[in-house]
């Protein structure tokens, strides 16, 4: 009995010593902080301003010299990751579920709704970070769970395609005098709806079916920032719509509503985002 007691005491002492050592060696092991990623939308070097549906006030000009304006604009962001020079990694938790309060990791930046411009990342391990990676879009794991809530709920304004299940993950609507599209009493309409989340690759003589237009975008910060309990840095990302429009001709490409038609635009998405600056 006494021997047992002694062994137990020694074991207990050992464990206590072990844990106390760890703590003293690495005092910040569990320290968490936050980061706010801000998205600013631009058209070339002009800030993005929305006009009313039907407006003929053309503020912007494409690379092809075609005038246009914007009546509705936004995009979905998901699967956000941060990484740092010393091996720091933060992977934003993802959860697609019917309960809107439990949706995690999905964000939608909607022009005209300033609350949506900031992505608030929480529980980021303290440390240094100099790179952000995110998916522009909603991947299969956000679609094949079935009906989900919040910004993914079509009944609550989610940009969901009903005929070809999936989300419009990059949306631009406006007018251009170059577009001949007339719908009811709305003229010169331009609508660019980019979606599509799966590829069925070509096999033998069979062509590729569907197009995955989700794009993973990795951006280096202009400076390394530090996250801690007291430091909440904020990288500012600029998105330039002109890069996505590229050399599209609004006379022809003015009504994009399918994965195949959206492919040329989605290939330009990655080049439309840069980290302009970071606030420590």
């Amino acid at each position: 009995m006494k021997v047992f007691n002694n062994i137990y005491s020694m074991l207990l002492l050992f464990v206590v010593v072990l844990f106390s050592c760890q703590e003293s060696e690495n005092p910040t092991i569990n320290e968490k902080g936050e980061m706010i990623v801000k998205f600013d939308n631009y058209v070339g070097n002009q800030t993005m301003i929305l006009d009313e549906l039907g407006s003929t006030n053309y503020r912007y000009t494409t690379a092809k010299g075609q005038e246009f304006n914007i009546t509705r604009f936004g995009y979905y962001i998901s699967h956000v990751k941060l990484s740092g020079p010393n091996g720091e990694v933060f992977v934003d938790e993802m959860n697609a579920t019917a309960d809107a309060s439990q949706i995690k990791g999905y964000y939608r930046v909607v022009q005209g709704e300033p609350d949506t411009y900031n992505i608030h990342l929480k529980d980021v391990p303290a440390g240094q970070y100099n790179k952000i990676t995110f998916t522009l879009g909603v991947r299969e794991d956000g679609i094949q769970e079935g009906a989900v809530g919040g910004i993914l709920d079509r009944a609550a304004g989610g940009w969901f395609w009903n005929w070809n299940s999936g989300f419009i993950h990059y949306l631009f609507e406006g007018h251009s005098p170059s577009s001949p599209v007339v719908q009811g009493d709305i003229t010169n309409r331009v609508r660019l709806h980019i979606g599509g989340w799966k590829n069925i690759p070509s096999e033998n003589e069979d062509p590729q079916r569907f197009f995955d237009n989700n794009v993973e975008i990795s951006l280096d910060f202009d400076a390394t920032v530090r996250v801690s309990e007291s430091l909440r840095p904020s990288p500012h990302i600029h998105m330039n719509l002109l890069k996505v429009i590229g050399d599209a001709d609004f006379e022809m490409e003015n009504n994009i509503h399918s994965p195949a038609a959206g492919k040329p635009f989605s290939q330009r998405l990655a080049g439309a985002f840069i980290v302009d600056h970071t606030h420590q």
């Binding site: 094949q144 769970e145 009906a147």
Partner: peptide, 14 residues
């Protein structure tokens, strides 16, 4: 075109 049973009624409603 619809890839999950949950989404099927949306198409019929709309």
């Amino acid at each position: 075109g619809v890839t999950h049973l949950d989404f099927a009624p949306i198409l019929a409603f709309e």
